[in-house]
Write a protein that binds this DNA or RNA. Structure first.
Lengths: 197, 197
DNA sequence: GCATGTGAATGATTTCACAGCT
DNA sequence: AGCTGTGAAATCATTCACATGC
């Protein structure tokens, strides 16, 4: 659930503001959402609140982090060291949420040897072994559309469990592998759709 | 509808492969979707197909482009010339779909003066006038979370109609302005949620 | 015969409304 | 009194199945 992630963000901000308790209503107001929705989302994972009182911010942060699987550190590799891949590798937001990029790969004739964030860009044909040896669970694909399917297949073969794909192609699903598609142009089209409609 | 954008992309690929006709079933197979869904999505905008035959690829591309509002060129500006903003400004996929970045802005003390893709990064306080003078409809926000709300307010004040916001904060809605949120860390959390759940 | 377009059926999600606890 | 947790109701989305037209 992507909503849980947004709740968690807001809770972190509340914690910084030294708020210790919060009600579903307050959360809803600040998120532009419905209070019942928030309660239902949370109650799906357990009874985190106290009736008549609300939720303890710090406690809820802990529980939500656990539910979202970010009470641990995830390692990941980024494939594609072009503009987008480089930006992603440098993006601080990932590390802040516990997603640590431990490898960047690109075609040998591309930007190999380049250093990003203290990581040397390695040739793509070393990716599979790297994933296997280090048991990397997550791959971020920032390669051109033509290359995406093949890289994904190699990564899956090497044991990856989740793929975040920025290339504008649908990857064929594989059992036990969660694939999440994110296409930047499509996001802009959503806007143009609303602007022109 | 983000699905329409995916249909359109596939259609473009089919056109390149010199396919002139396609059925909802074929589209569905290649997209991993349901044929009825596709027909319903399309029929919402008009009767684009021919019974017993299917859809004419080129014709459907034209109609879909129109529905998605990308039968024209949209101008946009990118605010924030950090890693992400720079990558977005250089990203070719936008121009390919008709989204032309005509201005990049950043705080004066930041990367001002830097050149990206032939565009000089301008100080952020010139943004509002630029938007007004050039009637820019779309702003892409790639600024830190703290700055997002203020920049958005200025852009809206200056007449912007759509905002694609990469900062991890919810922007307060404004009448007549379509705001689309896209938070990269949240996308990774979706993956960790599925991997750990 | 074949594939669209669409009402009807099913399924999922969101919201309401209130019982139950502090 | 105040706020959670949750069945029931309402809304929204997807899928089925078939009449309609090439």
């Amino acid at each position: 659930m992507p909503r849980l992630a947004r709740y968690l963000r807001l809770l972190h901000r509340l914690e910084k503001e030294d708020t210790t308790r919060v009600s579903s209503r307050e959360l809803a107001d600040r998120l532009g959402a419905n209070a019942a929705q928030i309660r239902k989302d949370l109650s799906y994972f357990g009874e985190f609140g106290v009736r008549g009182v609300g939720y303890d911010v710090r406690f809820l942060i802990g529980e939500l982090s656990r539910c979202l699987g970010i009470d641990r550190e995830w390692t990941m590799v980024i494939v594609g060291a072009g503009q987008l891949g480089t930006a992603l590798a440098r993006y601080r937001g990932f590390a802040e949420e516990g997603f640590k990029c431990v490898g960047v790969f690109d075609r040998a004739d591309g930007s190999a040897g380049k250093e990003i964030n203290g990581l040397v860009v390695r040739p793509a044909d070393e990716m599979a072994d790297f994933i296997r040896d280090n048991e990397i669970p997550i791959v971020v694909l920032a390669v051109p559309a033509e290359a995406a399917a093949e890289v994904a297949a190699q990564a899956i073969e090497a044991g990856v469990k989740g793929i975040l794909n920025f290339a504008p192609v649908r990857l064929s699903p594989a059992p036990g592998v969660f694939i999440h598609q994110l296409d930047l142009s499509t996001e802009l089209m959503v806007i143009s759709f609303y602007l022109s409609g």
